[in-house]
Each structure stands twice: as structure tokens, then as C-alpha cells.
Design a protein around this nucleic acid. Structure first.
Length: 525
RNA sequence: GGUCGGUUCGUAUAACGGUUAGUACUCAAGAUUCUCAAUCUUGCAAUAGGGGUUCGAUUCCCCUACCGACUACCA
């Protein structure tokens, strides 16, 4: 979710200014390669409607060769391997970086030892001359190491006492003294790949990036990045930066994690994700969220339009987005609000669309949905509502009629079944509490008379037509409306819930109505 | 520990020196209906604490507290 939000803000910002949104795959850590992750990211963004202008082709593949539309390809850093070394070495030549020969194990040892003494190890001005690098070693020695060994790195030579003055589009002016910073590794001889810092600056420069909107975790690296632009002499085209606060867990402290989703019952991934260990994380898509709702909700988590509006299409977001309304503080994610957004979007969807989405669920429940009337004429499907309860076969129009009546009651399409199953299958059982409350002889004897009246009704059998006369009949007899109706409801629904009686009987038809009345008589009388 | 960032109802946020501190979600109550939802109305509920600056601070400054990020040959 956090990643999608970051991408979304980048996208909105770019589109608002007529810019391009570029996908670049930063896969410089061969140790942490996750199969399928790249494809997942692109599919997720695509589902959200965040379509890159560059980096990914129409088939959703990361572009490997430059072309007119993709002048900056390749977009995978692992494929840009040859580019970086010369930039790293240029830095060494100009005195901004140096070769370091300490192995990860050696440094780990020193670090552990110092921590045992309550000290912190930093590879910087205070320690670098005591370590093994091209600054501390005699030239002939380090040159030999450079030739013979393949596990050295290039480290940035952090200036000793400089205040780096930075600007962040969200946070404003930030200053850091370089004395507190360390000599970060920029390039690794072992796999001939850069680290994030070098790759990011070089690629942003080469790809003509004008704005970088990224997570808060990068803020501490910003001085290094500023200094790198300076060392390369690229300050005039240096991008502007914005650091987004993190998404926090709904309860307690800390950032949102997979665990929270599992524990509190909401997805933290846009799409279902299965990791290498086979652990499955649920996704918003699979949970039945509309992408518009997901995106809208995410956009409002840490940003506001400056007024009370809450519902935005992607285009409206592009219009309204503004960096100075991005929140500085971390935002706790609220799963209830996510559901509310989905409910809002659900009712905006057409009955036709919702019907199509409901059909697969019905089929899973053993319901057959057919074209109406079986006339099979092209383009006339869905015109007549038909229902056959014995074979559980219903026409599309029948389903659509129901959808239009129940969609305001649902948050997800998947709720439709729970809300309306009794319109497809007669109740098997009768809710005990409701039966005890309403199914008393003085009530159901009247209700059965009402049922007879309904069955004998000769006019047009629609809700609009029978509603009034039905009510007048009951009131005319001075029968208790609530009690009578709830007896019928018990027969029709099996519980004390659901649509109006007039709605139900006219949807399921007289025949099914009669059958349900007979059924409850046999069961409860 | 150090560096940096942050702090308005439970949550998301508005108010960019002057408001009875607004809105949405959640929750509660009422209205409505044949029930349940939906809907409508109402309600509960906040400027972390302490100092300044100012005629006046949610807003500017400082301190404290708390939260977070970073502190890898990870991104």
C-alpha cells in the first residue's frame, strides 16, 4: 500500500504538469532478488490505473532497448550494469571517493566489538585512516589490492565538517552536518553493481528526472545525494525532492506491516501476493475492492484537497493534487474508511456492471444465470426476468432487478449473496428468535389470509401495483401490520430482515410464494 | 546511543496570527419503514506539556515528552 501510494503521488504530480511518469526497476541487490516481484509491481500499478509513460511497454514488460518512446531504456538497473563503473571511478579520480578493501566480515567484527563497548562504529573521517583503503594505504599497496582482489568497494569520501542545506517540497528547509554521516558504499566490485545511492543519482540524471517523490526512509540519505550531484557537477539539473511520511498501522505504534493485515483482517497488498515461502497475503483486488476506491482512499491518506471533498476520480486527483497539501506526519491507515470508499464506489457502478460481477458468485452457489426467455436473439439478452426455482435457473434481467434493489445495502459485490440469497433459494431454516417473536397463531392465521389475498390478486403483479392495495387490505381489516408482514417475511426470507414484502413477492412470483407459504406451514404450524 | 523528521476529536484531516476549532469515517440516539439495511437529523469527541514572541497563538520560536525513520558491500 505504501509503495502504491508513493507511485500514485508521483503519477499525479507528473500528470498534472504534463510530465512523464517513469518506472525504473532498482534491482541492484542481487541477494534480495524476488522472482515475480517486478511483474507484480507493474500489474498492481496497472490495476490501480497508474500507467507509466516510460519504462513499461504496452504488454507490461520492462523495456530493455531505447526507442523513441523509451529514450532512457533499459529501465532495469541490473541491465544498466556497464554504465555505473565509470561514474564511480570518476568520483575516485576527482577525490570524491576512494577504494576500500575491508571485507564485510572484517567490518562486522569491528562493529560488533565496538558495540560491545557501548560505542557505535561509523566508516567515516574518524575511522577511515585506520581502515584499509586507498586513502590510508600506500599507493603501490592499494593498487595491487585493486588488481588482485575482487571484493573491494568504492566509498564516498564524506566531507568532514560541512553543513549540507537541503530543500524538501514537503518539509521545507533541512540542514545536516556531514560529520554525522558515513562513507557510504557506492559501487561493489564483487557483483560489479552500484548501490542504490550511486545508481539512483546516475540514473535520475541520465533519465532527466525532475522530481523525486519517495518514502521518508530516504530523508537521512538526502545529504549524500545532494553531495553526489555536487561531486558529479550536476547540481544545475538536480531534481527536487519530496519525502513522504510512512503509512502507520491502524492500532498501536509502528509502520504498517503484513502482519497487521492478517491480524486485523484487511489487505496490505494491492493484489494477492505469494512469497517464496508460499505465504499468501490477501490483496485489495481479490477482497473485492474497486481500484477507483482503493486509489481514492490511498490518495486521501496523507493528502487533502484543501476543502471537504472526498470522492475523486483519477482525473480529478490529477487536477486537485498539490504538494503543499501533503501531510508531514505519518498517517494511520483506517480499514473502515477503505470500506466506506468501496461502498461509495459500488453504488456508482451501473446495475449492468454489477450484475456481470455478481453472476460468477451466483454460479459458485449453484445458480444458473441465462439469457432471458431463451429466445437467443442477438442483443436482446437481459430483457425479461424469468425464474425457475426448481432448477435454480434465473435470467440476467431477474438478477439485474435484484441488484438494483440491493446495491445500496452492500459494501462489496460479494455481499450481494448474503443480502439476497433468499431471492434465489427458498429458506431452509427459520431463524429461531424471529420465529419465536412473530410466528404465533394469532399472527400467522392472519398472515395466511394475506397470502391468499396476494395469490388471488388479479391485477398487474408488480411492486408498484400491489403495494398500496396490500397495505389497504391489512389496514382495512385492522390487522397488526408489523406482525402480519413479519410472518410473511419469515416464510419468504427465513428471518426478520430483507426487502419489503411487496418487493419480494413480485420478484419471486406467485408460484414460489405459494410454495414458501406451504413450506413454512408444514414446518411450523 | 547519535542524526534527522513528526505531534489538531479514537482515525483521516480543515483552519497557512483573530472561527462557538470545521468535515468525513467509527460509535450512540432519534426520525422513517412491515423487518433489516439504506437514508435523514442530532450527539459524543481534539490543538501533547511547559515557556516565550504578540493586543491576540492550533498557526511563529525554544525546551520537555512521546512517536517515527535512518544509523548495511538493502533498497
Amino acid at each position: 500500500m505504501g509503495g502504491v501510494r508513493t507511485a500514485l503521488y508521483n503519477y499525479l504530480f507528473a500528470k498534472q504538469r504534463g510530465g512523464d511518469f517513469i518506472i525504473r526497476i532498482e534491482d541492484t541487490d542481487s541477494q534480495r532478488f524476488v522472482p515475480g516481484a517486478e511483474k507484480y509491481i507493474i500489474e498492481a500499478l496497472n490495476w490501480c490505473g497508474i500507467i507509466p509513460d516510460e519504462g513499461v511497454d504496452a504488454d507490461g514488460n520492462v523495456v530493455e532497448t531505447p526507442s523513441e518512446r523509451h529514450p532512457h531504456a533499459p529501465y532495469r538497473q541490473s541491465q544498466r550494469k556497464p554504465i555505473y563503473r565509470k561514474y564511480a571511478e570518476q568520483l575516485v579520480e576527482n577525490g570524491y571517493a576512494y577504494y576500500a578493501f575491508d571485507t564485510a566480515e572484517e567490518l562486522g567484527k569491528i562493529r560488533a566489538q565496538m558495540e560491545a563497548n557501548g560505542e557505535t562504529f561509523i566508516y567515516n573521517q574518524t575511522t577511515r585512516m585506520a581502515l584499509r583503503n586507498s586513502l590510508s594505504l600506500p599507493e603501490n599497496e592499494w593498487k595491487e589490492l585493486l588488481e588482485t582482489r575482487t571484493d573491494w568497494t568504492i566509498r564516498f569520501k564524506m566531507p568532514e565538517n560541512r553543513i549540507v542545506k537541503m530543500d524538501d517540497m514537503i518539509r521545507g528547509h533541512v540542514e545536516v552536518n556531514t560529520a554525522t554521516l558515513d562513507d557510504k558504499v557506492l559501487w561493489k566490485r564483487a557483483d560489479e553493481l552500484p548501490t542504490y545511492h550511486l545508481a539512483n543519482i546516475v540514473d535520475d540524471h541520465l533519465m532527466e528526472i525532475t522530481e523525486v517523490i519517495r518514502g521518508e526512509e530516504w530523508l537521512p540519505s538526502l545529504p549524500l545525494h545532494y553531495l553526489l550531484y555536487e561531486a558529479f557537477g550536476w547540481t544545475d539539473t538536480q531534481p527536487r525532492f519530496a519525502h513522504l511520511s510512512l503509512l502507520l498501522k491502524p492500532v498501536g505504534n509502528g509502520k504498517l506491516s503484513k502482519r497487521d493485515g492478517d491480524k486485523l483482517g484487511f489487505p496490505v497488498f494491492p493484489l494477492k501476493w505469494t512469497n517464496a515461502e508460499g505465504e499468501v497475503s490477501r490483496g485489495y483486488r481479490e477482497d473485492g475492492y474497486f481500484p477507483e476506491a482503493f486509489v481514492n482512499m490511498l490518495a486521501m491518506l496523507g493528502w487533502n484537497p484543501g476543502d471537504d471533498r472526498e470522492l475523486f476520480t483519477m482525473d480529478e486527483l490529477v487536477q486537485a493534487f498539490s504538494m503543499d497539501h501533503v501531510q508531514k506526519a505519518g498517517a494511520k491507515f483506517n480499514p473502515d474508511k477503505a470500506k466506506w470508499y468501496n461502498k461509495e464506489y459500488l453504488r456508482q457502478h451501473s446495475d449492468k456492471d454489477l450484475t456481470e460481477r455478481f453472476i460468477p458468485i451466483l454460479e459458485q452457489k449453484g445458480i444458473t444465470v441465462t439469457c432471458c426467455g431463451g429466445h437467443g436473439k442477438e442483443g436482446e439478452c437481459g430483457c425479461v426476468a424469468t425464474a425457475d426455482f426448481s432448477t435454480r435457473t434465473f435470467s440476467k434481467k431477474y438478477v439485474k432487478n435484484i441488484v438494483s434493489l440491493i446495491k445500496e445495502r452492500a459494501t462489496f459485490v460479494a455481499d450481494f449473496w448474503d443480502i439476497a440469497s433468499y431471492l434465489f433459494i427458498a429458506p431452509e431454516t427459520y431463524a429461531e428468535k424471529d420465529a419465536a417473536k412473530f410466528w404465533k397463531e394469532e399472527n400467522y392465521s392472519l398472515a395466511l389470509q394475506v397470502a391468499d389475498w396476494i395469490l388471488a390478486y388479479e391485477g398487474e403483479f408488480t411492486k408498484e401495483a400491489i403495494e398500496k392495495p396490500l397495505e389497504e387490505f391489512i389496514r382495512g381489516n385492522e390487522w397488526p401490520m408489523g406482525k402480519v408482514m413479519n410472518c410473511l417475511r419469515l416464510a419468504l426470507v427465513g428471518a426478520s430482515s430483507g426487502l419489503g414484502i411487496a418487493d419480494i413477492v413480485t420478484i419471486i412470483g406467485k408460484e414460489e410464494f405459494a410454495s414458501r407459504i406451504d413450506k413454512i406451514k408444514a414446518a411450523l404450524c
